[in-house]
């Protein structure tokens, strides 16, 4: 962080942005009423199922509940977002 950044008001690290990001995340969980424990269980089950078909990078796996613009009305709706990097397909499952 340099001096000029500080003068400009520090867009990235301004504490209000931290507040906003934290709030957005906590509200997503509040709204769908889904605890991190449930999310953890879901993650384990997803890994289990997908591993039957492909080898995945479990360390890079990212599963979270976020929000997206709903298609019907103007509000936002929660979505389950999963980013699962594939290392290779399992041959055995196809044969």
């Amino acid at each position: 962080m340099d001096f000029f950044n500080f003068l400009k008001g520090n867009e990235g690290t301004a504490s209000k942005n931290v507040a906003k990001d934290r709030l957005k995340l906590v509200l997503v969980h509040d709204r769908v009423n889904c605890s991190s424990q449930v999310l953890e269980m879901l993650k384990t089950d997803i890994i289990k199922v997908i591993s039957n078909y492909m080898e995945i990078d479990e360390d890079e796996l990212d599963i979270q509940i976020t929000q997206t613009q709903s298609e019907e009305n103007n509000g936002t709706v929660p979505v389950l977002y999963a980013n699962i990097p594939i290392k290779s397909m399992r041959k055995s499952s196809h044969e």
């Binding site: 008001g9 867009e11 504490s15 209000k16 906003k20 509200l27 509000g75 936002t76």
Partner: peptide, 18 residues
């Protein structure tokens, strides 16, 4: 504080709460 970026703005709050 809003000007300094240390307090959420009206738009920030209305966006979050819709």
């Amino acid at each position: 504080m809003v000007k300094r970026g240390d307090m959420m703005t009206i738009d920030d709050v209305t966006e979050i709460l819709a």
